[in-house]
Write a protein that binds this DNA or RNA. Structure first.
Length: 511
RNA sequence: GGCCCGUUCGUCUAGGGGUUAGGACACCAGAUUUUCAUUCUGGUAACAGGGGUUCGAUUCCCCUACGGGCUACCA
């Protein structure tokens, strides 16, 4: 059992865009597979036809691709030996019905014919009677219409005449069910707390519970790594493995803590992103029905590796103090035992910090190539060697790639001058002072930061003035701003004639 | 309501029967810098509460409180 090759799966429903919590689940599966040299599978769980959202499946595939956590088997990533990987297609092949019937034959499941009205009525009746448990279970099923209460001939008559029916699991009345969770240890529940869950729906589709167990078994999944919201149904799943006779190869479970809202309570939801101004999704998404737009990390300017890094640390931590991990390092270090038990509040601020770190790790050349299309979009030059010079100056204050362009004066002369800077620094005699500085500039050769700075210092000494008295004027005249990167480097990038032109223009424009 | 899971600085977390309870983000202060930013240095800040067990508990056990999840012919 333990010598089986590790095989894990990510099994989302295509009911909308993939939430960052889902991406984290996929990531942990991916890292676990990589760590153990195993397989990572993408299975699409589309058994609920009513919730199908066009484009959602492609969104999931695109998101995983962008994040660099690609499955080596599954929908959108090439079929493996267990195709198809879409449950709707697997249902077509009759993969689920036979197992539901097997359960009926072995006495662990039964047909139920109750209408939704009858189910509703049952619930109300039990509530009115102040019953502890209002579910369809070992006790209440005795009062309902199913193959356990109806005479055999009526059951077969209903079946033959095409009466709608579901197949329910027959949960024992009072039995301890134990689930071993890698993260939480043993979880013990009495079967009286469980209900006779529907395994097979009247529309011919299996429910999650059946499809999930059948597919995990058939696909030889060894570890089920999923969100904590599944913990309550894990005992049911254990029972299904047992009744199907698959307990020997039952996968090990690991239920991940949830991602919580940055403020207040509850789990992170789609709304929070819009409300708090940060993305909840990896990629932009437009709802095909409502047209609602949700922003994504990719389009906000986040690097995929930074996004993955931050996600990895939301619920997992190595034993040391390291926080920046490459994907390879994560795969090396990751272990389910070090996943925390409690939910993690998501902090958008730290997300920015991660991006900043990754931006700094990138070479100027790489950034220039990333920046070029952005610059082009804004009507700025996309010349790589020039952009590299820009990046040298703007890199240290940038969080996102686009921030590298936050120095418009490097691309064109300022049209306006920052009014507070002008008020504070520009005096009536400043124009004359700049005219003198202009004369000194002419003889600086080569026109580079160092000689320029030397010339500037000579100029200051001659005038017996301090840096603070003159440099802001120089900056204001050339950039129109009161602050920014090293002024001498800015001048070097701009070139002598441009600098001279700008100072001349400023002298005439400023009071 | 019932069942299940959880609880270390504001946040993410390390730690673990005896520690000055460590790191990171954020925040504050100082230094460097022409300025902003960077960088560096320092600082504020946590074991939910109550009972046990123990020489000793933040660490183990129980209870309470709080938080979260589940409670569909949804996943």
């Amino acid at each position: 059992m333990s010598d089986r090759k590790v095989r894990v799966r990510f099994a989302p429903s295509p009911t909308g865009p993939l939430h960052m919590g889902g991406v984290r689940t996929a990531l942990y599966n991916y890292l676990f597979a990589k760590k153990h040299g195993g397989d990572f599978i993408l299975r699409i769980e589309d058994t609920d036809q009513t919730r199908y959202v066009p484009g959602a499946e492609q969104y999931i595939i695109d998101s995983l691709k962008w994040c660099g956590i690609e499955p080596n088997e599954g929908v959108g990533f090439g079929d493996g030996p267990h195709a198809p990987y879409r449950q709707s297609e697997r249902k077509e092949k009759g993969l689920y019905k036979q197992y539901a019937e097997q359960l009926i034959e072995s006495g662990h499941a039964y047909y139920a014919f109750d209408t939704s009205e009858e189910l509703e009525e049952m619930r109300k009746r039990l509530e009115a009677a102040k019953a502890k448990n209002t579910s369809y279970n070992a006790i209440s099923r005795q009062t309902m219409k199913n193959s356990l209460t109806l005479p055999a001939d009526e059951v077969s008559k209903r079946l033959q005449s095409g009466d709608p029916y579901v197949i329910r699991i027959k949960i024992p009345r009072n039995e301890e069910v134990r689930v071993k969770d890698i993260i939480r240890g043993w979880v013990v529940v009495n079967s009286s707390e469980l209900d006779d869950k529907v395994l097979f729906k009247s529309d011919g589709m299996p429910t999650y519970h059946l499809a999930n167990i059948v597919d995990d078994h058939l696909m030889q999944i060894t570890h089920v790594i999923r969100g904590e919201e599944w913990l309550p149904s894990a005992p049911l799943h254990v029972l299904l493995y047992r009744y199907l006779g698959w307990e020997e190869t039952m996968p090990q479970f690991a239920h991940l803590p949830l991602l919580l809202k940055p403020d207040g309570n509850g789990k992170l939801s789609k709304r929070d992103g819009d409300r708090l101004g940060f993305p909840v999704f990896p990629l932009n998404w437009v709802d095909p029905v409502t047209g609602d737009k949700s922003s994504g990390y990719r389009e906000k300017g986040y690097f995929a590796d930074a996004f993955i890094n931050l996600l990895a640390l939301l619920g997992w931590h190595s034993s040391g103090n390291q926080e920046i991990f490459s994907k390879e390092e994560l795969a090396q270090e990751f272990s389910l035992e070090r996943v925390s038990k409690s939910g993690a509040k998501f902090d958008p601020e730290k997300t920015k910090w991660f991006n900043q770190q990754y931006l700094r790790m990138r070479s100027d050349d790489e950034l220039a190539h990333l920046l070029a299309p952005l610059a082009h979009e804004r009507g700025l030059t996309s010349d790589i060697s020039f952009l590299k010079k820009v990046i040298e100056l703007t890199k240290e204050r940038a969080v996102f790639t686009a921030d590298l362009l936050d120095a418009p004066y490097l691309f064109a002369a300022p049209e306006e001058f920052d009014s507070t800077a002008v008020e504070k620094k520009w005096k009536p005699e400043s124009g004359a002072l700049m005219t003198e500085w202009l004369a000194c500039i002419q003889s600086v050769d080569p026109f580079e930061a160092a000689p320029l700075e030397a010339a500037f210092k000579d100029f200051l000494a001659a005038k017996n003035l301090g840096m603070g008295a003159v440099l802001p004027l120089f900056r204001l005249a050339v950039t129109g701003q009161g602050m920014g990167p090293s002024m001498f480097h800015i001048a070097e990038v701009l070139g002598k004639s441009e600098v001279v032109k700008r100072i001349q223009a400023a002298i005439t424009k400023l009071p």
